[in-house]
Design a protein around this nucleic acid. Structure first.
Lengths: 229, 229
DNA sequence: CGCGGTTTTGAAGCAGTTCAAGTAGCGTGG
DNA sequence: CCACGCTACTTGAACTGCTTCAAAACCGCG
């Protein structure tokens, strides 16, 4: 049995969004059995590759991670960026269907997929998180299919920025731990199109690029919302 | 608690693909408690709409269903077609994030989302199916994001046909229960582009269109596979 | 200061869209 | 039983948003 889930009391957990870092630490502190091994990865380091055997799943403590799929000729689709509090690396089969690497220096907590103790404890806090993570991943995937299938370049960038703003929780300035190439491969565009969309939004006074283009300040959230359709 | 899942023994179920109709009936027959209410829908009839309260989830007995999301201006993204054996309509929140309608005359089995008896029975056959359905939905969404983000029109159509061929289980001729518009809104294209891709594949001898364009015969599976990358 | 990487900008090209006919089933009613 | 009209699909031609190719700007670093 590769994985056990229980969604008791799932409702609230689902609406809570990514667990804040504070709660994350608390979990680790109060339940030694459920706490997995802390692992560190450097910027651009591979966490796992397509085809690897699935042993662990992970929760981001700090840093950021991308998970992606590749076509035989090298075309890449990044299906998600994972920020502190996010769980990723859950998989149904025995083999990885996606690859994952750290965008920047990153700390993760690794849990054995087969670790039922961690998943089915009396409180089952981690189990709830895992189930919520799966459902959230599906909802995000649905949103992203709509974006990829039906939105313009500018709308894609606007949606991306709003999503990132919401998830990173920071008001005002959003850090971009990923390169233009990563954003492009997430949004189904080229780096040039991403860059042009940023520039255009900046010229329109919707955003301001800061910190060597690796951060955006949202100046007109309403305009972004309008583009988000 | 809106929904309970347990994935014990999930592995094999996951690799099994959609349950064949035979097994479907067997499930219903052997476990009266788990069997939900049978419901019929006519072609083009709405099953639920975006914003509806979530009460049931469904399993397709016969026919076909599309689930989709809309942008405020009417742009539509069909996130999946559901064929006999498929489970759809699982949702985390209280409100529908997607709409669903029947493509053709369709029979479903409806289960109350809150029906824990059906989901957590000793054997828990339905619970496994539900968990497997969720994981499969996520895998399909990942495949589809790659398609939408990085594949050409012809590749999209090829992937779509191969997927449909695999899922419908029929060797040779594949029925297309959906219109060109539905296919277009699934593949992130226009109806004209879908039509042109079909025509092109036909001219190349890869497929043959039959039954008033509502069925395709695969004539060169290897060529389709190559396009699937 | 100059090198290597990333991002931006420019110009040309093109895949897919848009707009506009044309064709083919199919049910309906005379 | 056939003309009519409706809808779905296909085809053609022009257009355009994004890509591709190319070069410049920017920065961080040895």
């Amino acid at each position: 049995m590769p994985l056990a889930l229980a969604t008791a009391g799932l409702g609230p957990a689902l609406n809570a969004g990514p667990a804040p870092a504070a709660r994350l630490r608390q979990d680790g502190a109060q339940d030694g059995a459920a706490a997995g091994a802390r692992r560190r990865f450097e910027a651009e380091e591979e966490i796992y590759a397509e085809g690897d055997r699935v042993v662990h799943f992970y929760k981001v403590v700090s840093g950021a991670v991308r998970t992606y799929r590749l076509l035989s000729d090298g075309r890449r689709q990044i299906d998600g960026f994972h920020l502190p509090g996010d769980i990723f690396g859950l998989e149904a089969g025995a083999e990885r269907r996606t690859g994952a690497d750290a965008l920047v220096d990153t700390t993760l907590v690794a849990h054995r997929r087969s670790d039922r103790a961690a998943l089915t404890g009396e409180a089952g806090a981690l189990a709830h998180e895992v189930a919520a993570a799966m459902l959230r991943a599906l909802e995000r995937a649905q949103d992203h299919m709509l974006l990829l299938g039906r939105k313009s370049a500018k709308e894609r960038v606007a949606s991306f920025l709003l999503g990132l703003a919401r998830r990173s929780g920071t008001e005002g300035t959003i850090a971009l731990p990923m390169s233009r190439a990563d954003i492009a491969d997430h949004l189904g565009l080229t780096i040039e199109s991403v860059s042009r969309s940023f520039t255009q939004l900046e010229r329109e006074g919707v955003i301001a690029l800061a910190n060597h283009r690796r951060a955006v300040e949202v100046q007109d959230r309403a305009a972004l919302r309008r583009l988000d359709a």
